[in-house]
Amino acid sequence: MGEQPHHDAVRRSYDTVAEEYANRLCDELAGKPLDRALLSSLLEQTEPGATVADLGCGPGHVAAWLAAHGTKTVGVDLSDTMVEVGRHRYPTVEFRQGDLLELPAEDGEFGSAVAFYAIIHLEPGELHRAFKEVRRVLRPSGLLLLSFHIGDEIRHFDTWWGHRVNVDFRFLDPARIADLLETAGFVVEMRTERTHYAHEVATRRGYVLARRT
């Protein structure tokens, strides 16, 4: 599959900010107790010995947190530079470059998967296809944990931390995400929301936990 034009813009934008992104956000989970609790719950429910995928992993700090808690972890990101930064910073994590619409993984390779703020860069019509692709790479009964910004707006960035970029951040409706997951072959087990922490951008955050049928 050829890369979509907007995916190329997202990739180049994240290539541009990769080092600064890693420096600014490498310790962000320390200030996110709900995220840590949800990740811990995911690990507890993952088949022992199974690999966990971090999809849209960026520089790999979430994947590294998972690896530090005793699981084999594979980080996948669209940005080549993010993958390079991750490999340098977190040698215990395996990193692969790839698109959510065509994941570089075998059928049923992963016991569970995390995708924090990754689907916000997809076009609305791509979400179902992405969820079907995630289902493909999960084992039967494997879990998927998603997070995203809640709403119906699109925030476009021309600059990010002083760097020139071209990237859209799409806010999403939790009910629609749950419906799309169900039609893609998942059972939604949990939906929750929270307001932003003091150090975060002022948006409402959504989380969905779904199990592959």
Rank of each mutant, 00 (worst) to 15 (best):
A37E: 12
L66A: 02
A50F: 10
V134Q: 00
T16C: 06
V187N: 10
G58I: 01
L138E: 01
E20I: 11
T71P: 01
A105P: 02
R212V: 02
M190R: 10
D35H: 08
Y117K: 01
V52Q: 07
T92P: 08
N23W: 08
H69Q: 09
E19S: 15
V74T: 15
S79V: 14
H149V: 15
E126V: 11
Y90N: 06
A202V: 14
S147M: 06
T213A: 04
R24W: 03
R170I: 15
R96K: 12
S147P: 02
S141F: 01
G58T: 04
R11F: 08
M82T: 11
H149A: 13
L122Y: 02
R204Q: 14
S79H: 08
R12N: 11
C26K: 11
A53L: 08
L101G: 08
R191I: 12
R212F: 01
I154G: 07
L101Q: 06
A67L: 04
V137F: 02
H6P: 12
E28V: 14
P124N: 09
V134M: 01
R191P: 06
V187W: 07
I119A: 00
A37P: 02
Y14K: 04
Y197R: 10
G162P: 05
D54G: 06
A113E: 03
L103Q: 05
R135D: 01
L78E: 14
G151F: 12
M190D: 13
S40F: 14
G2N: 11
R211K: 12
C26M: 13
V83W: 04
A105F: 07
R12C: 08
D8Y: 07
V165W: 08
H128K: 11
G2Q: 15
W65K: 15
H199D: 14
T203Q: 10
R176W: 03
